[in-house]
Amino acid sequence: ETEYTFDDKREADRAAKEAQNNGLRVHVTKDGNRWKVRID
């Protein structure tokens, strides 16, 4: 399990989409004014 934090939602969405394309499970959550992408 890996977690990334992004300031920009577009960057978070791009990272999530890339991980999904690689067959990974992805969870995107909002943390204040930042975005967390957790990859299982």
Results as ranks from 00 to 15, higher is better:
R38W: 14
E11A: 11
Q20N: 07
V26R: 00
A19K: 03
E3F: 11
N33D: 14
T29A: 07
V37R: 00
A19N: 03
E3I: 14
N22Y: 05
L24M: 10
F6T: 02
K17P: 00
K17S: 09
V37M: 04
R34N: 07
A19H: 08
A12T: 02
K9S: 05
E11L: 09
Y4H: 06
E11P: 02
K30W: 14
D40V: 14
E18P: 01
A12R: 01
W35D: 01
H27T: 15
E1T: 14
Q20T: 12
K30H: 09
D8Q: 06
N22I: 10
R14V: 07
E18C: 11
T5Q: 06
W35G: 00
Y4A: 05
E1I: 15
R38S: 12
K36P: 02
R14A: 13
E1M: 15
V26H: 02
R10C: 10
D13Q: 10
R14H: 08
H27G: 04
G23T: 01
T5W: 15
E3W: 14
K30L: 08
E11M: 09
E18M: 10
R34T: 10
F6K: 01
N22T: 07
Q20A: 11
R10Q: 13
H27V: 14
E18I: 13
A16Y: 05
V28G: 00
K17L: 13
N21E: 13
A19I: 07
H27F: 12
T5Y: 15
E18N: 09
D8S: 15
T2R: 13
N21P: 01
D40A: 11
T29R: 08
R14S: 07
A15T: 08
Q20H: 09
N22V: 08
V26Y: 03
I39G: 02
E11Q: 10
D40F: 15
N22F: 05
T29W: 15
V26S: 05
T29I: 14
G23R: 03
A15N: 03
D31E: 13
F6C: 04
E11V: 05
D13G: 03
T2S: 10
T5S: 09
A16N: 02
T5L: 14
D13R: 06
A19M: 14
L24T: 03
E18S: 08
N33F: 06
N21G: 10
A19R: 02
R25Q: 08
A15Y: 15
R38L: 12
D31V: 13
F6E: 01
E18V: 11
A19D: 01
F6I: 02
N21S: 12
K17Y: 10
G32P: 00
D31Q: 08
T2K: 12
E18F: 09
R14L: 10
K9M: 06
D8P: 01
K36H: 10
T5G: 04
Y4M: 12
I39C: 10
R10W: 13
T2M: 13
K9R: 10
E3A: 07
D13P: 00
V37P: 01
R25Y: 06
V26C: 03
L24H: 12
N33E: 12
R25N: 10
E1W: 15
W35F: 04
R14C: 09
A15H: 08
R34E: 08
G23E: 02
K9C: 04
D7Y: 12
E18A: 12
E3Y: 12
W35S: 00
G23Y: 03
Y4E: 04
G23Q: 03
K30P: 08
K30A: 09
D7W: 11
V37H: 00
A15R: 08
R10Y: 11
V37Q: 00
L24E: 03
K17I: 11
T2V: 14
H27S: 13
L24Y: 14
G32K: 04
G23I: 02
D40W: 15
E3M: 09
Y4L: 13
F6Y: 09
K36Y: 09
R34G: 09
D7M: 11
R10V: 12
K9E: 11
R38V: 15
K17F: 11
T29F: 15
E1Q: 14
F6W: 02
D7I: 09
R25A: 08
W35T: 00
R10F: 12
D13W: 15
D31G: 02
R38N: 09
N21W: 08
I39D: 02
E1H: 15
R34I: 11
F6L: 02
L24A: 06
N33P: 09
N33W: 05
N22R: 15
T29V: 13
R14M: 10
N22E: 09
D31M: 07
E3L: 11
D13N: 06
R34Y: 10
T2I: 14
A15F: 15
A15W: 15
E1P: 14
V28N: 00
E3N: 06
E11Y: 05
K36Q: 06
K9H: 07
V28T: 04
E18L: 12
G23H: 04
V28C: 06
T5N: 06
K30G: 04
K36G: 03
R10L: 12
R25E: 07
A15E: 03
A15K: 11
E3H: 07
D7P: 05
F6H: 01
D40G: 12
L24N: 06
R25P: 04
R25F: 07
G23W: 02
F6V: 03
T5A: 06
T2A: 11
K17D: 07
Y4R: 08
W35E: 01
G23V: 02
T29K: 06
T5K: 04
G23F: 03
E3K: 04
E18Y: 09
G32E: 04
T29P: 00
A19Y: 12
R34V: 13
A15S: 04
N33S: 08
